[in-house]
């Protein structure tokens, strides 16, 4: 079953966009930081949300490969595309000195959180299923 499909693609992009923007705003508020490139960054987040949803939607087609290999490959692909975009952007305009580092952190943290949530859900599902099996077996 495809978790990300044509029907829910836009809504998943919107969820990513909202979560990342809220995280950014809270982080800036906590540090009392004013973002001078606010508009640029908002559109970067939108682009990043579309990209990450696209890459995660590939997960369905990569089921036969080991999970961790798929996650690492998807992470590397995302980092690669974003770094390439920063590099191309730098050709036409000036990048912030910490552009690469900032984007690296922006990609790594959501990926780590996502992988952790998936990992926890995976084992919770198995635990629940074992309880159901136990119940079914005890009824026999």
């Amino acid at each position: 079953m495809k978790l990300i499909n044509k029907r829910n693609f836009i809504s998943i992009v919107c969820i990513f966009f909202t979560l990342i923007t809220c995280g950014k705003l809270l982080y800036e508020r906590a540090l009392n930081f004013t973002d001078r490139y606010y508009t640029d960054n908002i559109f970067t987040i939108l682009g990043f949300s579309v990209l990450i949803t696209l890459i995660l939607s590939l997960h369905f087609y990569l089921q036969k490969f080991p999970f961790w290999l798929v996650i690492i490959a998807q992470y590397a692909l995302t980092v690669g595309i974003v770094f390439l975009a920063i590099f191309i952007h730098g050709r036409f305009s000036t990048n912030a000195p910490t552009a690469y580092w900032d984007m690296f952190v922006s990609i790594t943290i959501p990926f780590l959180i996502g992988a952790l949530v998936y990992y926890i859900c995976f084992f919770v599902q198995i635990k629940r299923a074992n309880k159901v099996l136990e119940k079914l077996n005890s009824e026999e």
């Binding site: 999970f67 995976f122 198995i126 026999e140």
Partner: peptide, 16 residues
């Protein structure tokens, strides 16, 4: 056959 399953276990590759 679900009724013939003893238990499930996850492995490091997230396979069941």
């Amino acid at each position: 056959n679900i009724f013939k399953i003893k238990k499930l276990q996850g492995d490091i590759n997230m396979r069941v």
